[in-house]
């Protein structure tokens, strides 16, 4: 888990007149879960969207598997094996669960074995297969969003706050699913505000503030150091518990 799968070097992103990312340097190692932490407005979502090509970096490089992908368009980045689960989940509510999954299998028909695994991972996907995605609950929509991202084997999944607004039972279930996903070849870059959840599955961590990475290292190091947590995030893990 030492090779870098994704590297951001001095990435700047502007949205209209706003200078959001101000030189992000980030290394996402191959395998495991890298957690991106930071207060609201620190630039976490912008970082994911810049990697995905949805917002273009104005300066700096995004390198994925030794290829610079900074200037590629979003479909090309997706086809290189990066999936994206946005904060609003991006579910097509007018389509059924089955149609959502069918569209996500962009490279051909759905692999039945993989689908069976996903239905085991997220039981509501099977239960509501032919239901309109718009009628699912918030937690079920989040499961569909993650399920859609893994319907085909991916090298990297970018997940933006998957536990936001969910009930504790659903958060636990989502954490279990991500933990199982961790055991596959897939690498996860997770943006999360819930430090308790993030620390339970994260292997490495990067903390952002004001559009820059202000800390990067092993998750365990941050978990073990309450002073560092306080310094970086203003609140320690102990305070969460």
């Amino acid at each position: 888990m030492t090779d870098a799968l994704l590297t951001l070097s001095g990435v700047h992103t502007h949205i209209g007149p706003y200078h959001i990312l101000q030189g992000v340097d980030l290394i996402v190692p191959q395998g495991g879960v890298t957690v991106l932490l930071g207060r609201n407005g620190a630039g976490k979502t912008t970082t994911l969207r810049t990697i995905m090509g949805l917002w273009k970096a104005s300066q700096g490089d995004v390198r994925f598997e030794d290829h610079v992908i900074t200037r590629l368009d979003t479909p090309e980045i997706s086809r290189r094996g990066i999936a994206f689960v946005p904060e609003d989940m991006g579910i097509f509510t007018d389509l059924t669960v089955a149609e959502n999954m069918l569209l996500a299998a962009a490279n051909g028909p759905i692999d039945e074995k993989r689908l069976a695994w996903i239905k085991e991972l997220f039981p509501p996907i099977g239960t509501f297969w032919n239901s309109s995605a718009g009628t699912l609950s918030g937690g079920q929509k989040q499961m569909l969003a993650v399920a859609r991202a893994i319907i085909e084997p991916r090298r990297l999944i970018l997940i933006d706050e998957p536990t936001k607004g969910l009930a504790p039972a659903i958060i636990n279930a989502m954490t279990d699913a991500l933990r199982e996903l961790k055991n596959t070849d897939t690498t996860i870059l997770l943006v999360e505000q819930n430090f308790t959840m993030a620390s339970s599955i994260g292997d490495t961590v990067a903390v952002m503030d004001d559009g820059r990475i202000i800390h990067a290292g092993a998750m365990q190091e941050l978990v073990d150091d309450a002073d560092l947590q306080e310094k970086l995030m203003g609140l320690s893990l102990e305070a969460h518990q």
Partner: peptide
């Protein structure tokens, strides 16, 4: 139909 609802997500799934 998906593009009418959320074109950005269609792109993120790999479609031009």
């Amino acid at each position: 139909r998906a593009g009418v609802e959320n074109g950005e997500m269609v792109e993120a799934l790999g479609y031009r």
